[in-house]
Simulated scan of single mutants.
Amino acid sequence: MHTLTRQVRFSLNPFSARQVQGFNSYASKPCGEGLALYFSLWVDLASPLDLDTGFVVNVSEIDGVVRRDVVPLFAEMIYETFQDRQTPTLISLAEVLKKSWAVIENSFQPKIVTQLSLELAPFRRITIGSGEAQMFIYSEKFEFSAMHQLWNDKFDETTNFEVFGRCANAAGHGHNYVLEVSVEKTTGTEKNGWHSEFEKDVKEHFLDLVDHKNLNVDVAEFESLNPTVENLSFLAWQKLEKKLKNAKLCKVVVWENDRTYCSYSE
Score class of each variant (00 low, 15 high):
V229T: 13
H205V: 01
V183Y: 01
S139Q: 14
T127E: 14
G129T: 07
A220P: 02
L209A: 10
P122C: 15
L120Q: 03
I137A: 03
S117H: 02
N226S: 12
Q134I: 15
E199I: 10
G193A: 01
F144N: 13
L120C: 03
E143I: 08
L179G: 05
L179Y: 03
D218M: 05
L225Y: 01
N152L: 14
I137T: 12
F161G: 00
G193N: 01
S145F: 11
N176G: 10
I126P: 05
T159I: 14
E143A: 09
L116D: 10
E180A: 10
A220H: 09
N192F: 00
R166I: 12
T228D: 04
S145M: 09
F144A: 14
R125Y: 02
I126Q: 04
P227K: 05
T158M: 06
H205T: 08
T186V: 03
T228Q: 07
Y177F: 12
D156F: 12
D153L: 03
E204K: 06
L232M: 14
P122N: 15
E180R: 13
Q149A: 09
A121Q: 12
H148V: 02
S139W: 02
P122K: 13
F222H: 11
Y177G: 09
K185D: 04
G165D: 04
K203C: 11
K213E: 06
V210R: 05
F155Y: 15
V219E: 03
A121N: 13
E221L: 09
S182Y: 05
E184T: 08
A121G: 07
